[in-house]
Design a protein around this nucleic acid. Structure first.
Lengths: 194, 194
DNA sequence: CCGATTGTTGGATGGTGTCCAAGAACTATC
DNA sequence: GATAGTTCTTGGACACCATCCAACAATCGG
């Protein structure tokens, strides 16, 4: 990448190193039983340093996905008042495009072994809320009425997150993530149980 | 209620007393700035006692609603394999029926003043996940296919939570909570932006 | 009065996340 | 090569949350 020499003390670690150490420990001992000190010990740095790389323990799992969400929501906001259905769906897609196996995928796949199911439920909820409310805001500003905008946001956010979950559970191989997403989108168009 | 004398030391406090003290402080100082010790001091009991009544600080806000959700989800599970749309909606209704102003409603209404918006987002997400996954499970066992069941669960969970939010924000008076819910349900039936 | 029961309390413990000051390792400039 | 500026690491202190537990207090029924 950039081997350009920069001023200042060189980093003693990296997000990758720390994330790797963390994931190993999560698998070995479980998420709750792994303290931040455990992680930094294995990575060979001090506890303080952990917070130079991640803002919290759960951030190890989510930072990658969160960055994608941030980018996508900026693109979504740029659609402005003349957003339509297809445009919104296109704006959402980069959240999943080229998603490589990462700590989050690992956690989703090994939730039981890591004892991280509750944690994932809680934190997925937070992302759901963030994505849903951004979509709702866009829809609203494009003329959709309040309640429907909210429901639409929830449905689309669910499509994103549940396709990610299903993909991660099923081995995270293939190009099937986007396929999964497409299927989810399709099933929004005709919900059962009228 | 029951003035029946029971064995053992009488309680020195109550959920209501503690919740009241907590809500006052949340409004005065904000949620984050209010520690559990602050709450118990005002209520006149020790810090330890707090956990005899609530399992965490946020439980003060949610325990009432959570109890309703618990009850409703049990009823939902009882529907079994021959659940249909209307039956599910009826099972959900008790979550909102006769909902009186409580700490959660107060927090939703005064989120900004309490500085509790992030907290609410996160915790609402958890409830959303719980409700949605229960509905999805019921739908699945009634023959709805996986992806649609998940989306349906998300949409209905959103209907419950967003009607609660809107109702709380708008003064929490009237009988309009259930009306709000009915409107949300109606708008699920024809989402915009095909 | 006695035991059983139910609650309260303080203290200890271990974890999280924040803050900060001291210092280490590097670059660039004179 | 000294010096200054920059970037990062580190340890310590802190406030808080949540759990556990043993000691103790207040009530009941017999």
């Amino acid at each position: 990448m950039d081997t350009v020499p920069r001023a200042g003390r060189p980093r003693a670690s990296s997000r990758e190193t720390l994330a790797e150490a963390a994931c190993e420990l999560f698998l070995e001992q479980g998420y709750d039983a792994t303290s931040i000190v455990d992680i930094t010990r294995r990575a060979g740095v001090s506890r303080s340093s952990f917070f130079n790389y991640f803002s919290s323990k759960s951030d190890v799992l989510w930072s990658n996905f969160d960055a994608r969400v941030d980018a996508a929501l900026i693109a979504l906001a740029r659609l402005g008042t003349d957003a339509d259905g297809p445009a919104v769906q296109q704006a959402l897609r980069p959240m999943l495009q080229g998603f490589a196996p990462d700590p989050l995928a690992l956690a989703l796949r090994n939730a039981a072994a890591m004892g991280v199911e509750g944690e994932l439920l809680r934190d997925t909820g937070l992302r759901h809320a963030r994505i849903a409310s951004a979509i709702a805001a866009t829809a609203r500003s494009a003329g959709v009425d309040e309640v429907r905008a909210v429901i639409l946001g929830a449905a689309l956010a669910t499509a994103v997150l549940s396709s990610l979950r299903v993909w991660a559970e099923h081995g995270a191989g293939q190009a099937s993530l986007e396929t999964q997403f497409d299927e989810a989108l399709r099933s929004i168009h005709d919900l059962p149980w009228g």
